[in-house]
């Protein structure tokens, strides 16, 4: 009797695992959407710093335009926490400027630490993209 019971439980356990396997895969982030969004998310800081560095000064809506154009940001709200984190980490400084058409704007600039940080990220990115291209290019 006991043996039968044991077998039964094992059967159910197996059945359950197979049944929920696709879900587990999704859960652990194994789909294209998720991987893509992780990649973009990782590059967001670099791009924000890059935009600010290039223009010397930028306000959030302007940065958003460019990021959206490059399809790096889908949800606008994700930018604001990032900017605040970068600012609190001493990478960015800002000043307020009145705007004719809307609420006052926060113009962000790179601090010295920010500029250094950006240079480092930039170098890493160059190396990384080179390396990734080398690794994924089809072999002749």
């Amino acid at each position: 009797m006991k043996f039968v019971k044991f077998q039964q439980t094992r059967y159910y356990a197996l059945h359950n695992t197979i049944f929920y396997l696709p879900l587990f895969c999704k859960r652990s982030g194994m789909n294209v959407d998720n991987t893509e969004s992780q990649m973009r998310k990782g590059l967001l800081e670099l791009c924000i710093l890059g935009i600010i560095q290039r223009q010397k000064e930028a306000y959030p809506s302007d940065i958003l335009e460019q990021l959206k154009g490059a399809k790096l940001v889908v949800l606008e709200g994700t930018l604001y926490p990032l900017l605040t984190r970068l600012k609190n980490a001493g990478m960015l400084g800002y000043r307020w400027e009145e705007s004719v058409s809307g609420p006052p704007r926060k113009y962000f600039t790179l601090t010295e630490t920010g500029a250094k940080f950006y240079e480092q990220l930039r170098t890493t990115w160059d190396e990384l993209s080179q390396a990734v291209n080398n690794l994924t290019v089809p072999l002749l």
Partner: peptide, 8 residues
């Protein structure tokens, strides 16, 4: 969905 950490 806005809360995603910068550290990905």
């Amino acid at each position: 969905e806005l809360h995603g950490n910068a550290s990905g």
